[in-house]
Every structure is written in structure tokens, then in C-alpha cells.
Amino acid sequence: MQRIDAHQHYWQIARGDYFWMGPHVAPIMRDVFPADLAPHLQAAGIARTVVVQAAATVAETEFMLDLADKDDSIAAVVGWIDLEADDVEATLRRLAARPKFRGIRPMLQDIDDTFDILKPKQLAALKLLPKLGLRFDALAQPRHLPVVAALADHMPDLPIVVDHAAKPFIAKGILEPWASDMAALAKRPSVVCKFSGLVTEAGPNWSVAGLKPYADHLVACFGPDRLMFGSDWPVCELAATYENWLAAAKELLAGLSPAEQDAVFGGTAARFYGIG
């Protein structure tokens, strides 16, 4: 089974559109390129990755696609578009012509209006995705889970993946209503979930024991065939090294059979993102 890291980032800060960066993320404020991640992937036995947008610009999406053209370890790119732009269809079609473009990720967590993605103009744009063979990455917080469920009901043919398990409040030890809302969302067969970002939400004092209730709930809700491992590198370095998080993920999923672990660490991502 080909091992896949289903969620990581590359960026070049001088490009100037990473507006979320600041002193609060000082440890990761450096340029990151495939050569920087390569030693971690080699040590982990991971062959391919999915590179995900980190800036709300089409220019950054094209930057990632250009990297993907030159580096075979990049299996897929998830980018960003302005869903309210008048030229949204033309932009989507242009990007979809690039061989490794697989989907979009609006930065829902940065939008004050929790229900923004359900507005008519956004929905009209999202209806284009299945027609173009594209997916939707939901950068969601717990407040968005009922909204993502409503979106899945409205567009059952739209493949949706919830990034970072919707960022539960692990550092505070809060399970509800995240747990109930995640269980409800998992009833929608078009929705899968990334087993990623948990250490960041737990903070620098994280432990496997502290992550376990959240990890166990994800496995119970989605099962291994609808979960995919992601490192969220280099963002994970705010709390853990690549190797630390990978080791924790393996420990948290040790109760799965070898075939089920293969699904989480590669098979689910390959199927969802169309990675050969």
C-alpha cells in the first residue's frame, strides 16, 4: 500500500499573501519547500502527499501547482478560489486543466458568518465541483459541523473531507457538542475526515492519552475507510515534530488491523483524491 500524507503545506513567505502569519506562529515563519519535507517523508516511508492551500489567493494555488509539476512526491493539490467571483467557473475550469488539481478549500474558519458557505452564490459555485471531478476540503471548526452536514444533504454528489477533524477543543478537554455533531455528520456517506491537526489543537502539552478520546470517536464514527492521515506539516511543529505526530497517530490507531491501518495511511486518501 502506498503511504500518503493527505495534508501538508508549502509556502514562500515573500510571495506576500499569508496574511494569517504573525508572532503567534513564529516557529513556522520560514519558507518551506519539497526539499525541506523530503527527509521526513523518507524516514516515515511516505511516498506521496496532498498539498493544501495556506493563502486565500488563486496565485498561491498556482504556486503550489507549479511545485507539483516539478516534484513527483506531490500527488494532489487542494487550492483556493473566490466562490463569489463573477469568473468563478472560468477559474475553476482553468485550474482543473492542471493534472494534479483536485479540489478547493475555502477558509471557513476565518469567516465570521458560520453559514457563509450556504449562501446562494457559494452553492452555485460548489455545484460546479462534481462536474469537474473536484472535491471540497472543509476547513471547519466545531461551529461549522451542522453547516457541513446541511451542505452534504444539499449536494450529496459533492465529495467532502473535514480537515483536522473540525478542530475540537482538545486543550480544554471538551468533547460536546463536537462529538455528537461529528457523529451526525458521519452519517452522510459523501463525507470523510482527516486524521490530522489534533496535536495542534491539544497544544504543546499534548499527550497520546489526551488525544485518545477524540481519536477513538473519529474511528467509531467514520471507520478506517473514511479516515485519512495528514501531518499538517509544518503547522504541526507548533506542537510536535513530524515524527512525533506520526508516532502518536500510529499508537492511537494501533487497535486497527493492518488492512485498516493501510486505509488510514494511504488508501482512503488515494481513493478520495484520485491518486494512482
Score class of each variant (00 low, 15 high):
Met107Ile: 11
Val162Gly: 04
Tyr10Thr: 04
Glu176Ala: 14
Met21Gln: 13
Gln141His: 05
Ala43Ser: 12
His7Cys: 10
Pro177Thr: 12
Asp87Ala: 12
Leu95Arg: 06
Asp225Pro: 00
Trp11Ala: 01
Asp181Cys: 09
Ala14Arg: 15
Ser207Cys: 06
Ile117Tyr: 03
Met155Gly: 00
Asp69Ser: 13
Gly16Ile: 10
Met155Ile: 15
Ala35Met: 07
Val199Asp: 00
Ala124Phe: 02
Val199Arg: 04
Asp153Met: 01
Ala202Lys: 05
Trp233Cys: 03
Met64Ile: 05
Asp157Thr: 11
Pro258Leu: 07
Gln122Leu: 00
Ser196Trp: 12
Gln12His: 15
Ala124Val: 03
Asp86Cys: 02
Asp216Glu: 15
Ile74Tyr: 10
Glu237Arg: 12
Asp181Val: 09
Ala149Phe: 00
Arg98Leu: 01
Asp225Arg: 12
Phe222Ala: 03
Asp66Val: 09
Ala35Phe: 01
Arg3Lys: 14
Ala54Tyr: 05
Pro130Ser: 10
Val199Met: 13
Ile111Asn: 01
Arg48Asn: 06
Phe136Thr: 03
Tyr242Trp: 15
Tyr242Ile: 04
Ala171Met: 08
Leu123Val: 12
Asp112Gln: 13
Asp110Trp: 01
His40Tyr: 13
Ala171Asp: 14
Pro34His: 10
Arg271Leu: 09
Leu67Gln: 14
Pro189Lys: 13
His144Arg: 11
Asp262Trp: 09
Ala269Trp: 13
Leu134Cys: 07
Asp5His: 10
Pro23Gln: 14
Ala35Thr: 14
Phe19Cys: 02
Trp11Ser: 03
Gly255Glu: 11
Gly79Ser: 04
Val148Cys: 04
Ile275Trp: 02
Pro224Ser: 15
Val147Glu: 03
Ala240Glu: 04
Ala202His: 01
Lys119Asn: 06
Trp80Val: 02
Leu238Tyr: 01
Leu129Pro: 04
Pro159Leu: 10
Pro39Glu: 08
Leu65Lys: 07
Asp157Val: 01
Ile74Glu: 02
Leu185Tyr: 08
Asp232Met: 06
Leu65Pro: 02
Arg3Asp: 03
Met182Asp: 05
Leu252Gln: 08
Gly22Ala: 13
Val162Cys: 07
Ile160Ser: 05
Leu128Thr: 03
Cys221Ser: 15
Ala254Asp: 13
Gly133Trp: 11
Gly267Trp: 10
Pro189Val: 11
Ala215Thr: 06
